[in-house]
Amino acid sequence: MDDNTEILTVALTGLNATDNPGPGLGVIRALREEYPKIRIIGLSYDSLEPGIYLHNWVDKTYQIPYPTAEVGLLLDRIKYIHDKENINIIIPNFDSELYNFIKIAPELTGIGIQTFLPTHQQLEARDKANLYKFGEMHGLNVPTDIIAYSAEDIKKAEEKFSYPMVVKGKYYDAYVAHTPDQAQKSFYYLSAQWGFPVIIQQFIKGTEINISCLADGGGKAISIVCMRKLYITEKGKAWAGVTIDSEDLTELAQKFARATNWRGSFELEVMRDANEQLFIMEVNPRFPAWIYLTVAAGQNQPAMLIKLTQKISLPPVPAPTTGKMFVRYAWDHIVDVSEFQQLTAFGEL
């Protein structure tokens, strides 16, 4: 295919392949498989994101301002990088940066950088604090929750559902609390870490399933790959998982895409309880860290995202191959300290 050989420059974030990994390296691996000549520009926040130092995967990395900085600074920095690298497409891979990237998307288009992102409204609708309301509106099961602004609100949660309950930070982190003490401790920790509100959610016992999807912005999920978690780290991240397929899961993902008209990638974190009921626990507005498994299942979602961005029509995808497993592993990559110095001082490597 022609488009496989043309040189494409894609910039992306999420190079933090750490114990709580970002999806960046998975996305790169998927893209390199489809576009062997692709040029990958890493965008990093921390100087120790491993992807920065993996030169076989990332051609060049630039530090970019934190999502907390003014959005204008991000745009300026991207323009600076664009001048040197001539970026075709940007794929943001962090929840917390997405708002800013959506905001500057029109300006990026103006300078020739394409994106394929949801709208601010779509982003807001699936926010942890709004998810229950969203589920109610669209007939999707979401565990009951209490949006907590003070530790007093834990009592409201106790009245509404019983222990254990899940205490979640505004952006990241979740802890299961079995006692009021634990709930309170988690509340204080998470509010200090991520601000308000803290979400206290009904605990659902069951099987954890994650669904990686790509939707066209017109109400249709183009690719849906389901993964059953086989091993979970202390932080609740999948360390190993296997592709599965089931009609009710696919239907759930389609229903979400229809209800939101979602544009781009998203991940549904789903729980299947003892009564075979599916609950949406969380919706991540980006690719999951295990995204390379979609390639193994025969649906290269990052490559499909590129084609959607380029407005290339996609042939219908075959059903995902089930029984493909991923087992994540850690690797000590060796570099000289001068690379770290170089990046820290000049913001480029």
């Binding site: 120790l48 530090q63 301002p65 907390t68 900085a69």
Partner: peptide, 14 residues
């Protein structure tokens, strides 16, 4: 000191 794990300053020169 070149620190690890703190926000970088790039893009903030302005």
């Amino acid at each position: 000191k070149m620190n690890t794990g703190i926000p970088n300053k790039f893009g903030q020169k302005a």
